[in-house]
Write a protein that binds this DNA or RNA. Structure first.
Lengths: 126, 126
DNA sequence: GTGTCGTGCAACCCTGGGGTTGCATACCGC
DNA sequence: GCGGTATGCAACCCCAGGGTTGCACGACAC
């Protein structure tokens, strides 16, 4: 999932962020973590691990991924490290997706129109 | 990625669709395919494979995933099978993401408010 | 100071899925 | 009918990453 092949000219201007967000959100455990985090507002890896079916270490790894994706932030508090959700990352990606969707739709309708036009043989009733 | 743990009560009403869409979009090759597809409007696995750095078989598998996620549709045409993008799936997920983001933001601000209030010591006005 | 609790490595296991090759089958043009 | 081409299916390889255990270190309470 880290081996972007060929990299194709970014016609759709795919922001690196979106990539990370998708990868992050693709994992069910990570979505669980986000859910827990958002309803607590604030939590350490240890606390989260308590109420999740995985080890603290696993949670830590997931939090790292989420952090990379800009979906959470961490801050030290004494000997604890507390994480919280950062909705901005999600919003940005959602908007990007909407944009892409629109773009696709537009392209498709153009192509469809062209296809329809081309379909009528030259001898069609104007 | 197929082992949804514990399944947690769907407080955020996570639609099965979103799950699939994230998983689909998380793969770079799949995003490439979508891009190619959308600018052609229409293509068979064989054609796509020609202009991508992978085998036809690989492309086929990816198309299957995209189909599952509702991001493309296929239709037979003679001995060919032509795929095309379905922007609706993306749009739906984008909207869902926006909703979730808003929800998170709301929760967070509530929590923050409560925290601030609680922070002032017991000598608060009854 | 000492025990406890939370964090931060690092090594390691194991499954899933992205990718491949090989072959059988179905359709088209001639 | 026959060759060429597109699809479909199945077996197989390989590695990224999700998960674990074990341990060392830092911070707090007493």
């Amino acid at each position: 999932m880290t081996t972007e092949p060929a990299a194709a000219e970014p016609a759709a201007a795919e922001p690196a962020a979106a990539e990370a967000v998708f990868a992050a959100l693709a994992d069910p455990t990570r979505r669980l973590i986000l859910d827990r985090l958002s309803r607590r507002g604030d939590a350490s890896a240890t606390v989260l691990a308590d109420e999740l079916p995985v080890t603290r270490q696993a949670v830590v790894k997931h939090l790292a991924v989420l952090d990379q994706a800009g979906l959470v932030t961490a801050r030290r508090d004494g000997r604890e490290r507390r994480y919280r959700v950062r909705p901005a990352g999600l919003e940005a990606t959602a908007r990007w997706m909407d944009g892409i969707a629109a773009q696709w739709a537009a392209r498709l309708s153009t192509i469809k129109r062209l296809a329809e036009r081309a379909e009528r043989p030259e001898r069609d009733p104007a």
